[in-house]
Amino acid sequence: MAKPMTKTQLVAALAEEMGSDKKSAGNALDSVIAIITREVSGGGAVTLPGVGKIYCRERPERMVRNPATGEQIKKEADKVVKMTIAKALKDSVNG
């Protein structure tokens, strides 16, 4: 498996794709991340065309097991961030 792209590499690739400098690309990436974070943490969802949909899902209170002791513990309800991958991305990877 290939190593994941770092933020520095992503900013450099984005700058090259945009035809601008790395500082502008870094600011653009930080802005997109801030918008996604704000929207999803507020309970909304963000769709990135061709990539997927990022959303927050609530999980109910449930019983979980401590793997070290086997003890059953009640875990409070919480929220988890999910992402559904777009069909276009799946098809480009598989085809």
Rank of each mutant, 00 (worst) to 15 (best):
Arg62Phe: 06
Val93His: 00
Lys7Leu: 01
Gln9Ala: 09
Leu10Gly: 10
Ala86Gly: 10
Gln9Ser: 04
Lys22Pro: 11
Asp21Phe: 13
Lys7Gln: 09
Ile36Val: 10
Gly95Trp: 12
Asp21Asn: 11
Ile35Thr: 14
Gly19Ile: 01
Arg59Val: 02
Ala45Thr: 15
Ala77Pro: 15
Ser24Gly: 10
Val51Trp: 12
Leu48His: 14
Thr47Gln: 07
Lys75Arg: 05
Arg65Met: 02
Val32Leu: 15
Ala68Ile: 00
Gly43Asn: 06
Glu58Arg: 15
Ile73Glu: 00
Gly43Asp: 01
Val11Trp: 14
Lys53Met: 04
Met18Tyr: 10
Val32Trp: 08
Val80Ser: 12
Glu71Gln: 03
Ala28Asp: 09
Ala68Met: 02
Thr6Gln: 08
Lys75Val: 03
Gln9Met: 07
Lys90Asn: 14
Ala12Gln: 15
Gly50Ile: 02
Ile35His: 11
Lys87Gln: 11
Ala88Lys: 04
Arg38Leu: 13
Val51Ser: 03
Val46Arg: 01
Arg57Trp: 06
Ala28Asn: 07
Lys87Leu: 09
Gly50Arg: 02
Leu10Lys: 02
Pro49His: 08
Arg65Ser: 02
Asp30Gly: 14
Arg57Ser: 10
Arg38Gly: 14
Lys90Val: 05
Glu76Gln: 11
Val11Pro: 12
Val11Phe: 12
Asp91Phe: 04
Gly42Met: 07
Asn66Arg: 04
Arg65Trp: 00
Glu61Ile: 10
Ala77Asn: 07
Ser20Met: 09
Pro49Glu: 02
Ser92Glu: 12
Gly70Trp: 06
Lys79Gly: 06
Thr84Leu: 14
Arg38Thr: 12
Gly70Cys: 11
Lys75Pro: 00
Gly19Gln: 01
Asn27Gly: 08
Lys74Leu: 08
Ile36His: 05
Gly50His: 07
Thr8Phe: 08
Thr37Asp: 07
Lys79Tyr: 15
Thr8Ala: 15
Thr69Ser: 08
Asn94Lys: 04
Lys75Tyr: 07
Glu39Phe: 11
Ser24Arg: 07
Val81Thr: 13
Gly95Ser: 06
Lys90His: 01
Leu89Gln: 11
Leu29Thr: 15
Gln9Gly: 09
Val11Lys: 15
Pro67Gly: 09
Arg59Pro: 07
Arg65Asn: 00
Ala25Cys: 06
Asp21Ile: 02
Pro4Lys: 06
Leu14Ala: 03
Ala12Met: 12
Asn94Arg: 07
Val93Ala: 03
Cys56Asn: 15
Ala12Trp: 07
Lys82Arg: 10
Arg57Ala: 13
Glu71Phe: 05
Gly44Met: 00
Lys7Gly: 11
Gly95Cys: 04
Lys53Asp: 02
Val93Met: 00
Gly19Arg: 01
Thr37Tyr: 13
Ala13Leu: 13
Gly70Lys: 04
Pro67Cys: 05
Val64Thr: 06
Ala45Met: 13
Leu14Ser: 00
Ala13Lys: 14
Lys79Thr: 15
Asp21Met: 02
Pro60Leu: 07
Ser92Pro: 11
Ile54Cys: 03
Lys79Glu: 00
